[in-house]
Amino acid sequence: MIGLAVFLCFIGFTLFSMANKKHFDLAFPEQSLSTTGKWVLHVVGWAFLVPALLICVQLWDTEIGATVWVGMLQLASLLVSACLTYLPSVYLNLCRYGLLGQFWSRR
């Protein structure tokens, strides 16, 4: 369950990073990111973070759960950053084929 929560946070932050123009352009050099697209990525990103919070609250109760969740967010954001830097192919494939990437690839 803990691993799942961290994974959800990781996906959430990957979506956030996709909403960043620099990383988006890397994955989809021929597309441009609209404001709506940015919002969609953010909302869907949060849609992954919230279940992670619920898992933490389930496991540790509200006060401690929320604290642990913040710790997980920190870990997940670093994982995204490390993936982006040292495993760019994994990151780009995740963006293009794993998450909402199909939406931009098909255009």
Partner: peptide, 28 residues
């Protein structure tokens, strides 16, 4: 904009990125 950005092998820039990323990602 530079939230996840780490550029290794670029001397000063890498140090700045390393400093900023370790600070920002664990800011809470």
């Amino acid at each position: 904009a530079d939230f996840f950005m780490f550029r290794p092998g670029k001397k000063l820039l890498s140090w700045i990125d390393g400093h900023a990323i370790s600070a920002v990602l664990a800011l809470p």
